[in-house]
Simulated scan of single mutants.
Amino acid sequence: MKKILFTLVALLSTTLFFAQEKGKFDFTASLHNQWYWRGYAVGPDPIIAAQASFKYRGLEVGTWNGYGLAGIWKDVDTYISYSKSGFTISLWDIFNYSDYTASPAYAGYGNHTQANYFHLGKGTRHFFDLSVGYSVPKTGLNLFLATIIGGRDRNTDGSQTYSSYFKASYNFSLENDITVTPYVSYGFALNSDNGNTFWQWTDKAVTDAKSSGFNEIGVNISKPIKITDNYSIKASAGAVASPINHTMTGLLGVTLF
C-alpha cells in the first residue's frame, strides 16, 4: 500500500516538475443528481464535482473530488494516466470520507469523516484502481477494464480480493448534437474467498454473495445546451439497471465548464 501511494505521489511530482512549461492546466465542474459508480449510487444525494488536471502530450495527472450537497458523501481522488493510439492506462487513488450516518437509508456504512488520509494499513479508506481503456478506431466502441490492486477491497482473512470491472459502451450521434451511449458492464473478483466483490452494495447482493455478475445495463443521452453565444453546458440523462444489486437508477448531470 505505501509503495503504491509513494509511486503515485512520485510520478505526480516528477511530471509537474519536468513538464510544467510545455503542458497545460485544465479544470471542470459538474452537478449530478447523485454519484453513481460501477453499479450503485454511492453518493445518494445531489453532488457537485470538480476535476483539476495537468496535461502534457499523452500524460495527465490530476485530482477529482466530489461533495454531496446534503453533507453525506465526500470523496477526493488523485490519478495519473497515459494515452496513446486509442489506449489509456490509469492509476487512481480513491479516498472516500463520507458520513453515511446522515441518511437513515445509508447509516450502516458508517461515519468516515474522521478517517486518517495517511493511514494505509488495515481499515484504510483508500483503494487503488488500475485500469486500461481502448477506443476502437473509426467506431464509437469503447472498452474498459479495471482492477482494485490495493486498499479496502479485502476478504475476511485480510487478503486482497482484486475486484475487477469490465465495461463496453458505444457512442452514436443523432441530429441536434445528441449523443446516445448504451453500455454494459460485468464485475468479478480474482481472489474472492466467499463470493464477495467490491461491487455488491445492497443487502440482498451481499447475502447472495456472487463472485461475478452484471454490474450495469444502461443508456446515457447527452447534448450541449447553448446558454450564450460564448458559453454552453453539456447535459446528460439516462437510466441504468444493476442486476448484481437488483436496482434501477435514473441519472442526471450537467457539466458547467
Results as ranks from 00 to 15, higher is better:
195 G>M: 06
64 W>E: 14
164 S>Q: 07
218 G>K: 01
120 L>D: 10
172 F>V: 04
87 F>M: 09
250 G>T: 09
187 G>W: 04
58 G>I: 06
2 K>A: 14
18 F>D: 08
53 S>F: 08
32 H>T: 13
51 Q>R: 13
134 Y>Q: 01
159 S>H: 03
166 F>Q: 12
190 L>C: 02
97 Y>K: 04
103 S>T: 01
109 Y>Q: 12
249 T>M: 11
173 S>L: 06
76 V>F: 15
136 V>H: 00
18 F>L: 06
44 P>Y: 10
103 S>N: 15
59 L>P: 02
230 N>D: 09
164 S>L: 04
148 I>V: 15
99 D>Y: 10
8 L>D: 09
36 Y>S: 00
168 A>T: 13
23 G>M: 05
256 L>G: 00
22 K>A: 12
60 E>G: 12
39 G>K: 03
24 K>G: 15
133 G>C: 00
15 T>F: 04
90 S>F: 05
116 N>E: 03
181 T>E: 10
47 I>N: 12
169 S>L: 02
133 G>K: 12
31 L>V: 10
70 A>V: 03
113 T>V: 14
35 W>L: 14
48 I>D: 04
17 F>V: 10
195 G>I: 08
221 I>V: 15
253 G>I: 05
208 D>G: 08
239 A>G: 01
77 D>Y: 02
24 K>D: 14
244 I>T: 10
